[in-house]
Amino acid sequence: MDQIWRIAKTVVSLLFRRPLAGVSIIPLLADGRIVLIKRRDCGKWGFPGGLVDWGEDISTTAKRELREEAGLELKNIVRLVGVYSSLDRDPRMHSICITVAAEVGGEMKIYDTAEVIEVKAFTLETLPAGQLAHDHDRHLQNYLDNHTALA
């Protein structure tokens, strides 16, 4: 019985005590503006993104999340901005976020109203830098510095 209990604890640990993988997208419009979403959970601006669904690859997740949260179409992934895995990067859970910068098109529209309350394009001068959700200020700075982070 003791051995069964140890195995059960190990299985539960393997299933539920692992970081989740997610994607954030820095959406770049043709005119140079960057699109942000205003999150319903914290009321702050941030990049569109979310968890990778079972059976999805990173680019598929990026396309889906960009469409759901901002109504935009992913045209081209420009570059990897970083992989962020710090334990305190997201107050909700331990997650690993893969952030990409991408050229996007289409019209901004919110499809996921449970998570997003506004979507807006900002010039570099009007970005609410220093006030973004989670660790998105770090992602933004890495993008602006043309730095690829592993953090």
Rank of each mutant, 00 (worst) to 15 (best):
P91G: 12
D90H: 12
L20K: 15
L29A: 13
L140P: 05
I25K: 07
D112L: 04
Q141R: 06
D57V: 06
A114W: 01
A102P: 08
E73L: 10
P48E: 11
I26S: 08
E68H: 06
R138G: 03
V35P: 11
V100H: 01
H147F: 13
D41L: 09
S13T: 14
F47N: 06
L28T: 10
L51V: 07
A121L: 02
G50S: 06
A30I: 10
P19W: 14
K44E: 11
D31F: 08
D88G: 08
K109G: 01
K63G: 00
S59G: 03
V12I: 15
C42A: 09
R138T: 02
A30L: 14
E118L: 01
R6N: 14
P19E: 06
P19I: 11
M1F: 11
K120C: 02
A151F: 13
K9I: 08
K120L: 02
S95H: 13
E115Q: 08
T148W: 02
G32M: 15
A149H: 03
E115V: 04
P91I: 08
P128Y: 01
L74V: 12
G82W: 13
W45C: 05
H147A: 10
G22V: 12
E56Y: 06
L87K: 12
P91A: 06
F47I: 04
P48G: 06
W45H: 06
D31C: 11
I25S: 09
R64Q: 03
D88N: 14
I7D: 14
E103L: 11
G71I: 04
P19G: 13
Q131D: 10
R40P: 03
T113L: 01
E115D: 03
I117A: 02
F122A: 02
I58K: 10
H139N: 13
Y111G: 00
L144E: 04
G22N: 07
V116W: 02
V81A: 05
R6Y: 09
I25Q: 07
E73R: 12
K120P: 03
Q3M: 14
K109R: 09
V100I: 14
H147T: 04
A30P: 13
L140S: 04
V116S: 01
A151Y: 11
M93A: 11
P27R: 13
E56V: 09
L74C: 02
K63S: 14
V104N: 04
N142Q: 10
P48A: 14
S85W: 09
S85T: 05
L36P: 14
T61I: 02
I58C: 01
A21D: 15
H136L: 02
H134L: 10
E107K: 12
K44M: 13
K109M: 03
A149G: 11
L80I: 07
Q131F: 05
K120S: 04
V104W: 03
K44T: 09
M93H: 08
L15P: 00
T10W: 12
L80V: 08
T10I: 12
I26F: 09
W45P: 08
R79K: 15
D90E: 12
Y111R: 13
